[in-house]
């Protein structure tokens, strides 16, 4: 594996209860790259993220991690038992016992004042900033973000994205991000991977946005051009036919 590559997936397949969720996924994340994973619900995005993180073992294929790989992870949502009395600062201390470093991380994500608040009382945006702070404490060279603006109100989404962009510049880390938000995704990312159990298409945002498979998944509203389909999906998202005609 080249020095520049932090993690490489080859031919990853994963099934749950006989149902195929990922098929033959190849993916490599190089230093400093921003890679965005898009795809409809049930496309296997979170499953792929969990394979990258090592939380799930694929049925087939290989995962190679660079010895220098240091991952910071921001999960899609955070559910903390209401019976668990836990303050924001303490939540961060699981990643870094030194409370002053935790305070600094919270300062960087803009919620230092909440350090003594119970985690269950945070808003969506505050929760995401707390999770981001915990990921930062790991001094990651790869930041894995699963729908980072989910549950954040529209006015807060832009702020959170620009914070992520700033942090990425400061840390010089790679980002592997799942997103639904195509406009913002397109603006910042180096590479877009369009997933629907298999990789439908991938490449630069410009390349992907004119790819027929992209429109197949996201329709014309999000696309910049009119496109041609090259295949369609059945209910299980299997590719059922190759097409050459245009019917958008």
């Amino acid at each position: 594996m080249k020095d520049e590559v932090l993690i490489r997936l080859d031919g990853i397949s994963k099934q749950f209860g006989g149902q195929s969720v990922l098929q033959q996924i190849d993916l490599s994340i190089a230093k400093n790259r921003i890679i965005t994973l898009i795809g409809p619900n049930g496309a296997g995005k979170t499953t792929l993220v969990k394979v990258v993180l090592g939380l799930l073992t694929p049925d087939k294929g290989s995962v190679q991690r660079s010895p220098q790989l240091h991952v910071g992870y921001m999960p899609q949502k955070l559910i903390i038992e209401p019976t668990m009395p836990l303050k924001v600062g303490r939540f961060l201390q699981f990643a870094e016992p030194d409370i002053e470093l935790c305070r600094a991380a919270l300062h960087r994500t803009g919620i230092e004042s909440l350090i003594n608040n119970p985690v269950q009382g945070l808003s969506g945006g505050e929760t995401q900033r707390m999770l981001l702070a915990r990921a930062l404490l790991r001094k990651p060279n790869l930041l894995v973000l699963d729908e980072p603006v989910q549950g954040v109100d529209v006015s807060g989404q832009e702020g959170l994205y620009s914070l992520i962009a700033d942090l990425r510049r400061e840390l010089g880390c790679a980002i592997f991000m799942v997103s639904h938000d195509l406009h913002l995704v397109m603006a910042a990312t180096d590479e877009v991977i369009c997933l629907n159990q298999h990789v439908c298409c991938s490449g630069s945002p410009q390349q992907v946005s004119i790819d027929p498979a992209f429109v197949e998944l996201f329709g014309t509203k999000t696309a910049l051009y009119t496109h041609h389909h090259d295949h369609t999906h059945d209910l299980n998202s299997e590719v059922i036919s190759e097409r050459s005609d245009s019917h958008v």
């Binding site: 993180l53 939380l55 999960p75 903390i80 836990l86 939540f91 699981f94 990643a95 790991r138």
Partner: peptide, 9 residues
Amino acid sequence: VQEDLASVE
């Protein structure tokens, strides 16, 4: 508190 984060850490 959070299994996945603990595991990644």
